[in-house]
């Protein structure tokens, strides 16, 4: 499925691998947290990513952070906002610097909030129009609170411009 990053669509170099399949050599792969904990894959040349389920605590990734290029967080329904807290924890508590990807049932109205929480890439449905997403992202250039990304110049009190 198409990926949206910095307002543009781009291809996905990763393949998602089930817990039973062998890890493909030389191809970027996304595995589950359970598999990461079980196999602790090491010595790969290709990038490795992990898909967190909504109920999984990102802190479980701490021993592996140096080996991870990507962490995916998922909204099973758009109303299920656990991914926001997972993304923020990845950036803030864990200091993760790789790609944080939002997958699942994401609405354009949520794009700006995801970016503010540290998500960098959103997986879109096939055929989605990035223009709608970019318009929604820019609907509110001002925020009333600190976040982990996108804070620009302060506007008095706790307010700030948002660049995300």
């Amino acid at each position: 499925m198409p990926l949206l990053e910095d307002g543009r669509l781009r291809p996905d170099p990763f393949v998602t691998v089930t817990d039973e399949e062998p890890l493909p050599e030389g191809t970027p792969a996304i595995i589950s947290l359970a598999r990461l904990l079980r196999d602790a894959p090491a010595g790969r040349n290709a990038p490795l990513g992990v898909a967190l389920a909504p109920e999984e605590d990102p802190r479980a990734l701490v021993p592996f952070l140096g080996r991870l290029s990507l962490v995916a967080v998922r909204l099973p329904k758009h109303r299920d906002g656990r991914a926001f807290t997972q993304a923020r924890a990845l950036r803030e508590a864990l200091g993760f610097r790789g790609e944080v990807r939002a997958t699942g049932h994401v609405l354009p109205d949520q794009y700006a909030f995801l970016l503010r929480c540290g998500v960098t890439v959103v997986e879109l449905p096939e055929g989605a129009d990035p223009a709608i997403w970019n318009a929604a992202r820019q609907a509110h250039p001002v925020a009333y609170q600190a976040a982990v990304a996108g804070d620009a110049e302060p506007l008095g009190f706790l307010r700030r411009h948002v660049t995300a």
Binding site: G81, F84, T85, R88, A112, F113, L114, R116, C117, H140, A143, Y144, Q145, A147, F157, L158, R159
Partner: peptide, 9 residues
């Protein structure tokens, strides 16, 4: 103000 369109909550 803090809770208005809070990105996480």
């Amino acid at each position: 103000q803090w809770s208005t369109l809070h990105p996480e909550f």
